[in-house]
Amino acid sequence: MTTMTLTREAAVRAPRRMAGFWPTSPALMLLTVFFVAPVLGLLLRSVLEPQPGLQNYVEVFGSTTYLRVFVNTFVVATIVTVVTLMLAFPVAWFLAVAPRRWASLLFAVILLSMWTNLLTRTYAWMVLLQRTGIINKTLMGWGLIASPLPLINNLTGVTVGMTYIMLPFMVLPLQSTIRSLDPATFRAASLCGANRLQVFTRVFLPLAVPGIGAGVLMVFVMSLGYFVTPALLGGTSNMMLAELIAQLVQSLLNWGLAGAAALILLVVSLGIYAVQFRFFGFKAAGEVE
């Protein structure tokens, strides 16, 4: 309320070209002090600690240990993105065309899963995938396997857990894209002699590219920086970048290296979003919530 009166007074006093800026200033101040400054501070430490120079970057890119973390991060993010897309596309298609009753039922399930606490979902998968968990017990009960499969603390565990969490973020943009397609385009294609497969590959897929692009980029970037699920479902041998940053700070107190790793993660993530912004506009980038 104070700002609204403030807007008035400010509009009278302030130069015309800043019209309407003042209401944004409390939020801007909060972000400048507690977001921009701390993040810049962290990134600066990467070139200032332990002594000024680029030695942290030399170490990060030069050591096989850290290189393995980078490679693993990209591998996991890629696998999760591909698996999620494969599952999400038919689901989004179903949501867009199926009878309303079934579509809204599935939609409710997706929202329930998405809104359920992140740790609850991760815990559920820890329980299901553990050595004596339901999946191993069931498979052994059916005689399909003789001893429990290693499903947790490895790539399998991370992939299952992350795919579970990322699915809604892929399904939602995809289904809104598919829903917006014009059936007349499809009819035109088949009237012109295209068979089903051709209609799918030459009309459907190209038209769905904005949705696919939005979903793929978002899931990929979110996976790159994910912390909780890899930390609980992954193993020590396939650590991801976010876990490395946390470990450098919490156990090794190596702020210089942590800053360097953070800068790399930040540049890659925001870089990918910039590409998305360029090609699909801001709406696609902010569509998640």
């Binding site: 801007l28 977001f35 501070g41 940053i245 700070v249 953070a262 993660l265």
Partner: peptide
């Protein structure tokens, strides 16, 4: 400014977490 306001949503949380922790 709009982009700045939305950045915390798209950046990796772990970076924000470590930065704020240090601060």
């Amino acid at each position: 400014l709009r982009a700045l306001f939305l950045t915390p949503m798209v950046m990796p949380v772990v970076v924000l977490a470590v930065a704020l922790y240090a601060f």
